[in-house]
Design a protein around this nucleic acid. Structure first.
Length: 270
DNA sequence: AAATTCTCCTGAAGGC
DNA sequence: TGCCTTCAGGAGAATT
């Protein structure tokens, strides 16, 4: 599933092909995504020139002078550049058509989305209340401590809340909490500042590492059209329930937290 | 206001 | 081999 690194790599991958190009058509074969693709979307954007492609949280923003397309890859979405004559397959739900190429969106489970927002793009309701980007200085111990103060919510649920910080999905929340030695169930308000500092650093580290792998992940994905692949051998806890903790060798526990699989070491994480 | 639960969807994996 | 059930999950919406 696309995490922040895949979204980052997606933007980097399609940007060079379409920035400066005029969008010629939006071909929607199946607009039933998480939200239906608006019927009038093509009219608002066809004939305009792409100014930039960038990421905000896990949203892909394709911006024009007068607004922008807001894309989300959901669970199983991907955007890739293909040649104009390549025929679409079953789950290829829409194409953004340019003179020399297409940006083709594929999404078997259709949890993704494609929306339009007039300038400024970030005024859209989906973007307006997002928290800071985890890899910038805007996400720091002061911000996290304020967010946690007095909260009874589990720390894992809090760091996965995009209003607090964007881009921390289930896999990386599990990994970061393990790296910081914090039990995912611990109440957010009961984590010391020193340990929140560790958590901030762990989130930045795990995402930065994943972005380095993201390129590789996406290349594999495009080449094989198979699993996105997470280089699971590098994950310390996610997907390793029952297996020995890499620090103390005790078996890792698995629980549910907010309907999400949560794996941790009962000994190393307090 | 804060926290939890529900919801969308379909491929993969497990059970028999 | 094949059918059935269960699970996975981003994140907004609904509910408590």
């Amino acid at each position: 599933m696309p995490e922040l690194p895949e979204v980052e790599t997606t933007c980097a991958g399609i940007g060079p092909h379409i920035v400066g190009q005029v969008l010629r058509a939006v071909d929607v074969r199946d607009g039933r995504l998480r939200w239906p693709i608006p019927e009038n979307l093509a009219h608002q954007v066809v004939g305009h020139r792409v100014r930039c492609v960038r990421r905000r949280g896990k949203y892909v923003l394709i911006e024009f002078a007068h607004g922008g397309l807001i894309g989300h890859l959901g669970m199983t979405g991907s955007m890739r550049v293909v040649t104009t004559q390549e025929p679409p397959s079953y789950h290829d739900h829409f194409d953004l058509s340019f003179d020399q190429c297409l940006v083709r969106y594929r999404d078997p489970r259709r949890f993704g989305s494609l929306l339009w927002q007039d300038s400024p793009v970030e005024s859209h309701a989906l973007l307006a209340h997002l928290g800071p980007e985890p890899l910038t200085d805007d996400f720091n111990v002061d911000v996290l401590e304020t967010a946690c103060k007095g909260r009874k919510q589990a720390i894992k649920t809090l760091i996965m809340d995009s209003k607090r910080v964007v881009g921390v999905g289930n896999i990386y929340a599990n990994e970061a909490l393990y790296m910081a030695g914090i039990n995912p169930h611990r109440q957010a308000g009961r984590v010391s500042r020193a340990r929140l500092q560790k958590l901030v650093m762990a989130i930045k580290e795990v995402l930065a590492d994943a972005i380095e792998q993201g390129g590789t992940t996406l290349r594999n994905f495009v080449d094989s059209e198979g699993n996105p692949g997470y280089f699971k051998q590098q994950l310390r806890v996610y997907g390793r329930a029952g297996k020995p903790c890499l620090t103390c060798s005790k078996p890792l526990k698995e629980t549910r937290l907010g309907q999400r699989s949560t794996v941790y070491c009962g000994a190393c994480q307090r």
